[in-house]
Simulated assay, not measured.
Amino acid sequence: MTGATVWLTGLPSAGKTTIAHELAGRLRGDGHRVEVLDGDEVREFLSAGLGFSREDRHTNVQRIGFVAELLASNGVTVLVPVIAPYTDSREAVRKRHQTQGTPYVEVHVATPVEVCSVRDVKGLYAKQAAGEIAGLTGVDDPYEEPEAPDLRIESQHQTVQESASALYALLIEKGLL
């Protein structure tokens, strides 16, 4: 069975994790081996102690990329919903996969910051607006949008199921399912 890394990048509260879990359920139902490497969980267990400087964010993304490639190279479809705000960090992960011959798909969950701040699942936008936190990606810290992702999802215009279905169709088209 072919594994692959499916990297879902986007702003906080864009819908990355929700879409990943929806797709994971569908793939598991089809009998695929699937793992979701959620950015928040990885930060808690694999990247504990890292902050949110550019260097720490890069290190976090590289750690996630390493684990994703390891799993994908062993036949697991790995869904990676992480912000990964910097192009150079995402490109380093892509290159690692290319070097190892492991399929890699980049998905930009391109939800506008105005929509994300209304969703504000974790209360981050409210905390930033109140001056309680700084360095919020897409507000007072940069987010470099992917220039040519394999798929761009505008989650504000479709349901979670439609977003997951679009990604499922892409994986079939690429011969990964």
Rank of each mutant, 00 (worst) to 15 (best):
E132W: 04
P146H: 04
V121Q: 11
D40K: 01
D38H: 00
E132Q: 14
P81G: 06
A148H: 14
A92S: 15
D56Q: 11
R152I: 05
V139P: 02
P85Y: 09
R63N: 10
E144V: 07
D56E: 13
S73F: 11
V80Y: 02
E91V: 15
R152T: 12
S73Y: 12
G75N: 13
E35K: 10
E44G: 00
F66A: 15
Q158L: 12
A166V: 00
E162Y: 03
S165L: 05
A84F: 07
E154N: 11
R57Y: 08
Q62L: 14
A164R: 01
R54F: 10
G65S: 13
V113Y: 13
Q161E: 13
K122V: 03
V109S: 03
P103D: 07
V78K: 01
S53M: 06
R152M: 09
G123C: 12
A72M: 12
S163A: 10
V93K: 03
Q161Y: 02
L167R: 00
V76M: 13
P149F: 04
Q156I: 06
S163Q: 02
Q156T: 03
G131L: 08
T59V: 12
D30F: 14
G135L: 02
T99S: 15
Y168M: 01
I64Q: 01
L46G: 00
Q98E: 15
V105Q: 02
P103L: 10
V118P: 04
Y168T: 01
T77Y: 05
V80I: 11
R119C: 06
V76N: 13
G138C: 11
S47Q: 08
R152K: 11
V61N: 02
A48F: 05
V67Q: 02
G123Y: 09
F45Y: 12
Y86R: 13
S155Y: 02
V93H: 02
V80R: 01
P146N: 05
V42Y: 00
D88G: 11
D38E: 02
A166T: 00
S47N: 13
Y86W: 14
D56R: 09
E114Y: 08
D56P: 10
S47A: 15
T77V: 15
R57L: 11
V121P: 06
G135H: 06
Q62A: 10
S53D: 08
I83T: 14
R90Q: 11
V107M: 05
T102W: 07
D88I: 13
E147Q: 12
G138S: 06
H58E: 14
A68L: 12
L167K: 00
A134M: 04
H58K: 12
E41Y: 00
L124S: 05
T59S: 07
E154A: 08
Y168E: 03
I64P: 03
P142I: 04
L151A: 01
V80T: 07
A169D: 05
V118G: 02
V67R: 01
G101C: 09
R63E: 06
V80M: 07
A126Y: 05
E55Q: 14
V107I: 08
G31S: 14
